[in-house]
Design a protein around this nucleic acid. Structure first.
Lengths: 337, 337
DNA sequence: TCCACCGGTGAGAGCGCTCCCATCGCTAGG
DNA sequence: CCTAGCGATGGGAGCGCTCTCACCGGTGGA
């Protein structure tokens, strides 16, 4: 069998089977209006010739591309350190497998690329867009919605965007879960290392922290801010230790910052969890290997990706814009708190 | 401006600019055979109308899709624990940005999906394929090559495949680097935890280990095999300790196994690096956070992805199948050796 | 003066597919 | 027995684009 031979087309198949192009097309697309004999004949011919429909031709007439874009909004360094996006990508890819939809990865970290991206999407190249993570003041969702492309974002936008739905995990609940763990352990000087205030995931976790404290009747604790990196966690912990030397617990808004906090605590001579209990957030791989192993909150990333995909597909298939979905989080108890 | 309006086509633009479709097409595609005035006029009209070429139509006639597939061959669990693929994906996506090429992510972990995949590729849906990681006996490269699709794989195949090129990092050199570090530290009982023998990355690193030992005139050391997981590293280390209680150094073929080894050593009461020095491989995030921090070998993943992309694009654009490229590795000295 | 040539342009075919509409051979109702 | 109706099929237009080819007017060499 030759490598160079042109791949068979609908016409080839039709001619070989002795039917019309239309009939072959009907069989390919599973139309009920075909006699069993014809269907059988065509099926056999298709298998024999190794026919595969040409996606471009189909999408040209159907005005569907059967592919969705996943837009990545982070620079590489962030991504490599953070398994969140990776999991997101993989999970989405898996959710899509079997649906006949393609996952197209698109870079869009800087503003220049926004333009290109919006154009790209408007060019009808994808049927829908998945926005992996949201930052406040991000113009992209608006651009996308305005061009009429179904879009679902991961994480709650800082303010509601009409026509845009999202799938978030319950960051308020998660923050609460973490803080309650500390409260239940009898801690009374509970500080927190919060994430950047321009991200709802960060502010929501902080809200959960405050809420838990309020419920327990404890005073509003100390808050230091980090940027979700280890080094910023180290600094924030130092700041906290400085401001409130008597603290006996810390909730860090993600695991990387918790790791930083652990480090600072160690060099400050505080034992974990004896002197200071620490709870992280995310349950990254690393959390199992710290010393002591990190108690943390796990968010269902794969489920989030799956849900986002489902919502998007439904919308692409003509469904209404779904209500936002918020997924439950889970405390993973280990040794640090 | 209405959301529902049909996007402008070549015809629309041509009519608006008062030229023919062909001229607009020439301008869009940067043909030199257009007068400056015409070009200017068309450019303005395009901007005004917000025209974006329809990719499907173009690819239908050009028989190019301007997209390449990246095939993922691992199950999710593996991926989440291993930043290799994630980095690969991101780096590829970034290497592609600006080339006008799309990155399509395709799942192909099991055999059933191979068929579909080969079909998909043969359907002319992508111009080329990037195979992220190779396992021995993998039929996919052959399938792809046979269907005439330019393909580049990451990592050296277990045996040469005609028409297939690859980009690997220098695993032999890396293994040697790691072992030499141990030799230079004056260690004389150097064992190794090797990876699965069906992966060239594993066997090459082992070769490097043997080579370094031979050069130093040291006896061929103890070898135990793991499966690149932490738990298998723990077991292999225990086995090694059992077989050669006098060992004073271990080279683990990846960081996860090194982490396992660290654990076993600790519970066996051996101090690292005082009693036993440990070197890992990969330089994953975790390596910075172990106790003691792990000395390891870093491979240039981003560069690998970039190179793979370049080779593939060159081949897609009619270039010959390039020779394999092997990238240099680097020792990252930390505290464990 | 004639014509080969050349840069710039337009007309038209056709890429592989879907889908509307016409057609055809039946069966069932009048 | 005729025909309305229906399921199965084929013909053909057209999706938006590229590309070949023909054409046009202007130039320079014979």
């Amino acid at each position: 069998m030759s490598v160079q031979r042109q791949p068979p087309t609908l016409d080839t198949v039709a001619a070989a089977a002795g039917v019309s192009r239309a009939t072959v097309s009907r069989v390919i697309n599973g139309s009920p209006r075909v006699s069993p004999e014809a269907k059988d004949l065509v099926d056999r011919t298709v298998a024999e010739l190794g026919y595969v429909p040409n996606r471009a031709a189909r999408s040209l007439v159907k005005r569907r591309t059967d592919s969705i874009a996943m837009v990545l909004r982070e620079a590489d360094a962030t991504v490599l350190a953070d398994p969140y996006l990776a999991s997101m990508i993989i999970a989405t890819s898996q959710a899509l497998s079997g649906t006949g939809m393609q996952l197209v990865l698109v870079n869009g970290q800087n503003d220049a690329e926004h333009e290109r991206l919006a154009e790209y999407v408007r060019g009808g190249h994808v049927d829908g867009v998945l926005l992996a993570s949201m930052h406040a003041e991000d113009p992209l969702p608006h651009l996308l919605i305005r061009s009429g492309v179904p879009t679902v974002v991961g994480g709650r936008p800082d303010r509601p965007v009409p026509g845009l739905t999202y799938v978030d995990s319950d960051n308020v609940g998660g923050g609460q879960l973490a803080t309650e763990r500390l409260i239940a352990a009898g801690r009374t000087g509970i500080a927190t290392i919060a994430g950047p205030p321009d991200m709802t995931a960060a502010t929501d976790r902080l809200t959960g922290y405050h809420r838990a404290l309020a419920r327990a009747g404890q005073p509003g604790g100390q808050v230091a801010y980090g940027r979700f990196t280890r080094i910023s966690g180290e600094r924030a912990m130092a700041e906290l230790l400085d401001r409130a030397p008597g603290l006996d617990a810390v909730f860090a808004a993600n695991d990387m910052m918790a790791v930083g906090a652990l480090r600072t605590l160690r060099s400050a001579g505080r034992r974990v969890p004896d002197d200071v209990a620490v709870v992280g957030y995310d349950d990254i791989e690393l959390a199992q290997h710290t010393e002591p192993a990190l108690t943390t909150v796990r968010q269902p990333i794969a489920e989030q990706a799956r849900t986002m995909t489902e919502l998007l597909l439904a919308q692409i298939n003509g469904g209404p814009v779904s209500d936002p979905v918020v997924l439950r989080t889970e405390l993973i108890p280990r040794d640090s708190a």
